[in-house]
Structure formats: structure tokens, C-alpha cells
């Protein structure tokens, strides 16, 4: 177990293994997202109350799931970095933040657009909406904090601490719809009970959710590799690998 963690923590090993895993996650993401999009946009039946505006669910819910999962992943990576000084964990956390911010933005934007025909308003200071806005600010804070230090190690530690503290917001987002039921409806999807939607509505949603998660994994692998190149460009193995690639292509 320990040997595995240390191997995983070695940038060189990670660079190699992620190159092998990456294409599978990209392929899965492309397949799932295309299937989910066609199914959700064209084939799923319209909602009997909301009509076709309900199709926004197929981008709104996956983005909102991912926005929260990425923050948790970032906090765990931060913890791993702080406790075991594993640099790859910090690199992964660094590349996760912008995608997390993007997904939070998508969740908020699609929710606002959906709110107009459904609730008659694009924004209200509802608990779910407000806690998601706080999540966006936490992401922006983590990103800004990384840029605010001249020392990379200080920046990494500050960002890790903010991620670990900010993760408190995640259960608040999750339970906000139950604690303060004002505007946003409670969870459509839970792991413990059967979905209340008909199969031809929730199956494309499940496909989209899996597609978004695959996209997240693929992108994180790819950008962590880029981050390794950025931070370790003075290392011999990086130089040999990159120059070796050139010679292979010739």
C-alpha cells in the first residue's frame, strides 16, 4: 500500500501511467456525452409540466455534481499533499480548480436560464443557489491564492488549506434543499432510492453524469501531465522523454 502510494506520487511514474489511461477516459467521455446529448435532447420525452425546458437538466445536474465532486477531490488532494508532501497531488489539485470553477458556472448559468420559464425568475437568494455561488467564489479564491505567492510551496499550502476548509460548503450545498426548502427542489437522484423519473428520462441523465465524470478524469490526467512538464522541465527524465519523442517521430 505504501509502496503504491509512493509510486503514484512519483511524477515520472504518473506521467507514464496517465498517458496509458488517458485515451480510455477521453473515448468514454466522448461516447457517453454524444449518446447522452442525442438521447436527452431529441429522444427523451418532454416533461408533462415543464415541456422541453426540462432538457436543461441533462447539463445542469451533471455540472452541479461535478462542481461538488471536483471540490472534494481538490480538498483530498490538498490533504494528501500536506500530509505526505506528494507533489503530484498538488499538481492535480492545481489543474482541477479551473474545471471546478467552470462546472460551477455551468450549473449556475443553466440553472438561471432554466429558472426563467420554470420559476419565473433567474435568481433568488435561495439556500441552494447561494451556497453554489459561494462554491464559485471558493474556487476563484483557490485559483487566486495560487497566483498570489512567489513561492510555489507557499502557494500550494495556502490553496490546500483553503480547499480543506472550503469543503465544509459541500454538505451545506447538499442539505440546503432539505434544511431551507425555499425555491430549489430536493435531489432528483439519490444512491439509495429508485429515481422518481421514468427510465427514458433518467437513463440519459445517468449517461451524461458518467460522461462528465469521464471528462473530468481525462482532463485531470492530461493537465496534470502538462503541470509535470511545467514544474519539472529541468529534470533529466523529462528532457530525455520529450527529446526521445522527437527522435521517435523522425
Amino acid at each position: 500500500m505504501w509502496a503504491f502510494i509512493h509510486k503514484l506520487g512519483s511524477p515520472k511514474w504518473f506521467y507514464g501511467i496517465s498517458a496509458k489511461l488517458q485515451p480510455w477516459f477521453w473515448a468514454a467521455a466522448a461516447l457517453l456525452l454524444v449518446t447522452g446529448t442525442l438521447w436527452g435532447l431529441a429522444f427523451a420525452p418532454a416533461d408533462y409540466q415543464q415541456g422541453n425546458s426540462f432538457r436543461i437538466i441533462y447539463v445542469h445536474v451533471p455540472a452541479a455534481f461535478l462542481a461538488q465532486s471536483i471540490f472534494i477531490s481538490m480538498a483530498i488532494s490538498g490533504l494528501v499533499f500536506m500530509v505526505w508532501k506528494i507533489k503530484v497531488a498538488d499538481m492535480a489539485a492545481a489543474v482541477m480548480a479551473p474545471l471546478g470553477a467552470g462546472m460551477t458556472f455551468v450549473a449556475l448559468f443553466s440553472g438561471a436560464v432554466w429558472g426563467v420559464p420554470t420559476w419565473g425568475t433567474w435568481w433568488m437568494w435561495d439556500a441552494r443557489l447561494t451556497s453554489m455561488l459561494i462554491l464559485l467564489f471558493l474556487y476563484l479564491g483557490v485559483i487566486a491564492l495560487r497566483g498570489a505567492f512567489t513561492s510555489r510551496d507557499s502557494a500550494s499550502r495556502a490553496a490546500s488549506v483553503l480547499a480543506m476548509v472550503g469543503v465544509i460548503n459541500i454538505p451545506i450545498i447538499k442539505y440546503s434543499v432539505d434544511w431551507w426548502y425555499t425555491l430549489h427542489q430536493p435531489a432528483t437522484f439519490t444512491l439509495t432510492s429508485r429515481p422518481t423519473m421514468p427510465t427514458e428520462m433518467w437513463l440519459p441523465l445517468a449517461i451524461m453524469v458518467l460522461g462528465f465524470y469521464s471528462f473530468f478524469i481525462a482532463l485531470t490526467l492530461m493537465r496534470t501531465r502538462s503541470e509535470i512538464l511545467r514544474r519539472e522541465s529541468n529534470k533529466r527524465w523529462v528532457q530525455e522523454l520529450v527529446v526521445g519523442q522527437v527522435e521517435e517521430k523522425r
Partner: peptide
């Protein structure tokens, strides 16, 4: 069904963002 501006703007922004993210990651690498 009359919801075109809502559905297409939500989907459009999402698709555009995902494509931009992939494009940026490729250029960066």
C-alpha cells in the same frame, strides 16, 4: 416547444465551455 432560447443557451454555453477547455488543454500541452 417554445423553450428554444432557454434550452439552446444552456446547452450552448456548456458545450462551448467543454470544447474550449479541451482546446486549451491541447494547446497548453
Amino acid at each position: 416547444g417554445g423553450h428554444a432560447p432557454y434550452v439552446w443557451s444552456a446547452w450552448g454555453v456548456t458545450a462551448l465551455l467543454l470544447l474550449l477547455i479541451v482546446w486549451h488543454a491541447r494547446v497548453e500541452h
